[in-house]
Simulated assay, not measured.
Amino acid sequence: MSQATSPIAPVAIVTGASRGAGRGIALALGSHGCVVYVTGRTLSAGDHALPGTIGETAAAVTAAGGHGIAVACDHADDAAVEALFAQVMAEQGRVDLLVNNAAAIYDELMHPGGFWEKTIKLADLINVGIRSGYIASWYAAKAMAAQNGGLIVFTSASGAAHYSLGPAYGAHKVAMDKMAFDMAVDFRHARLDVAAISIWMGALLTDRLKAIIASDTKKYGHLEGACEHPEFTGHVIWEIFNDPNRATLNGCTVVGAEVARQYGLTDEGRVPPTSQELHGVTPIAFHAKEIR
């Protein structure tokens, strides 16, 4: 059973948080005292090839100083997402922060060849990634509009603006950026104090990437020195959430490593490189034209 918590603590939902970026973001938010609902499909060790479960992440959030609550949720199932938000509203009465991180990431993304030569299941990124982010944001926006406050975050990457791992991955990343932009237009039109942003993460030193680096150090070994720790993005999100000028970022795609410098944040003492420094790539500038 979830325990009642103080309404003073911000209530966050981090999707896809059994491991990787989601786990790191959840832990960072927990270290700032947030109530964090940790969603995912991995309930027991051994359910996935990589380590990590939602229960383990929730316990780590609590150990970090927050209050972690694990909720089993398949984000391909709209009814499960609806039930998630119903639970959060019943237990907390509000949603302050949604981090859309759930995505169907398969090792086959790294395989050589054209997209037609790889497994067709890579298209799952359209459902668990693009569509699931929209559905979760739809429920979060209803709660945030009613309370007139909140932040929706999409985790993205520079693959939104250059070729990376094929069209399914690229479509997912650019969709994160565009959804944040368009949701922000609607929030402004409704004169709500609700913001949506997309944040480009760098390569993350997750268990998955560690395994990839170990599999071919000649090809991937250079990544380790340029990686961000998974918690880094969570600390950036926390700064944005508390920024009194947050509205200026509404609808923006921001580069986490770049924004971190503006807030004076480091990643365990080091300053990660930005996408522009690594690849000469910056977020796409969308036009302000509105057609309704």
Score class of each variant (00 low, 15 high):
Gly129Leu: 09
Ala247Pro: 06
Tyr263Met: 00
Glu277Val: 00
Lys173Phe: 02
Arg208Asn: 13
Ile284Thr: 13
Ala63Ser: 13
Ser6Asp: 14
His279Phe: 10
Ala211Cys: 05
Thr155Ala: 14
His32Cys: 08
Leu209Tyr: 06
Thr248Trp: 10
Ser6Cys: 06
Pro283Gln: 04
Arg191Lys: 15
Asp107Leu: 14
Ala83His: 07
Gly129Asp: 04
Thr266Ile: 13
Leu84Tyr: 06
Asp107Arg: 15
Asp74Phe: 08
Leu249Met: 11
Val259Cys: 09
Ala79Asp: 01
Thr5Trp: 11
Ile54Gln: 03
Gly66Ile: 07
Gly66Pro: 02
Asn101Ser: 04
Ala102Met: 08
Lys121Gly: 09
Ala136Gly: 03
Gly52Thr: 10
Ile105Asn: 15
Asp182Cys: 07
Ile130Ala: 02
Thr15Cys: 07
Arg188Cys: 10
Ile240Asp: 01
Ala141Phe: 11
Ile105Val: 15
Glu56Phe: 04
Leu50Ser: 05
Val259Ala: 10
Trp200Met: 12
Thr39Arg: 04
Ala80Arg: 02
Arg246Gly: 09
Arg270Leu: 00
Thr155Asp: 13
Val35His: 07
Ile54Gly: 00
Asp267Pro: 00
Val71Ala: 13
His75Gly: 02
Asn250Thr: 11
Phe286Trp: 09
Ala28Trp: 01
Thr53Leu: 02
Asn250Arg: 14
Ile135Asp: 10
Val95Asn: 01
Gly52Met: 01
Gly24Leu: 01
Ile212Gln: 14
Met110Pro: 07
Pro244His: 03
Asn127Met: 06
Ala260Gly: 15
Leu84Gly: 01
Tyr163Ala: 15
Pro7Arg: 11
